[in-house]
């Protein structure tokens, strides 16, 4: 884990519960994410991974418990919530690039409208970020003209443009054709190396092994196991995790 002098965790979840009707999707979740940490959340579908990820920037509300981001309890609504969200990047499974805006506009919209950055400066920074994710040549195209992998890299650039304290990745490669998964993972590994705090919900065990500091295994709304990637993949402690790993690692 990278050290940057601040010992308080960036994210702290305390006894978080959430129901979808009768379904108890988050059961008494306690979790902390340190600054600079790359946390990978894995587990079977429907286990509450995405809900957990989305709860951190309050795209999902919680029923009870507490979520503290950077020392502050998540605001419930309004300007304070918008401000918090501007500090937490989010990358979605389905990219969600603004369909009526060009790639460049997708990246500059947040800085100019939320942060009040001047258009020129935002445009320049957008090009640097698009360069970094390898899409600079497509800056004036529209999202639908790009491949899925390219769109997802733009989505990462869009999140980075806000200089977030953390980026949440909600199954960022699950909607991609297999040959495009790697280009997105490469960008993510680069971010992890640069010390970005990341919470990544994924089925990409390779990424977890390469970049994660810690793996959290979730099933049935609970955190079943937390460990380093090496320990988790070679020596899982719980039956549930061993069962899950045996199903996904055998082929």
């Amino acid at each position: 884990m990278t050290e940057n002098g601040d010992a308080t965790p960036l994210v702290q979840l305390e006894n978080v519960n959430k129901h979808f009707g009768a379904l108890h999707v988050l059961k008494n979740i306690n979790l902390t994410v340190s600054r600079g940490e790359v946390l990978v959340v894995i587990g079977p579908s429907g286990g509450g991974k995405s809900t957990l990820c989305r709860a951190i920037n309050r795209l999902e509300t919680i029923d009870d418990g507490k979520i503290i981001f950077d020392g502050q309890v998540l605001p419930a609504e309004g300007k304070a919530l918008a401000r918090l969200r501007s500090e937490v990047g989010m990358v979605f499974q389905s990219f969600n690039l603004f369909a009526h805006k060009t790639i460049r506009e997708n990246v500059t919209l947040g800085p100019t409208k939320v942060r009040g950055v001047a258009k020129d400066a935002a445009g320049k920074r957008a090009m640097e970020l698009l360069e970094r994710v390898g899409i600079a040549a497509q800056a004036d195209k529209y999202p639908a003209q790009l491949s899925g992998g390219q769109q997802q890299r733009v989505a990462i650039a869009r999140a980075l443009a806000m200089d977030p304290k953390m980026i949440l990745f909600d199954e960022p490669t699950s909607a991609l054709d297999p040959e495009m998964v790697q280009e997105v993972l490469d960008v993510m590994v680069g971010l992890a190396r640069d010390g970005m705090t990341m919470m990544v919900v994924t089925h990409e065990m390779g990424f977890a092994r390469r970049a994660a500091h810690r793996v959290v295994f979730m099933a049935d709304g609970q955190i079943v196991e937390e460990n380093t990637p090496d320990e988790f993949f070679t020596n899982a402690q719980t039956d549930r995790a061993r069962d899950f790993l045996s199903k996904i690692l055998t082929h």
């Binding site: 309004g78 918008a82 989010m90 389905s94 369909a99 009526h100």
Partner: peptide, 27 residues
């Protein structure tokens, strides 16, 4: 307009009115 458009707008910190004006209504 897919729900994800509004979620992405909110996720970068746009307020409700901003996301309605800049993202949802134009589409």
């Amino acid at each position: 307009v897919p729900l994800g458009q509004a979620e992405a707008a909110r996720a970068i910190g746009l307020t409700f009115m901003q996301s309605l004006r800049m993202i949802i209504l134009p589409q």
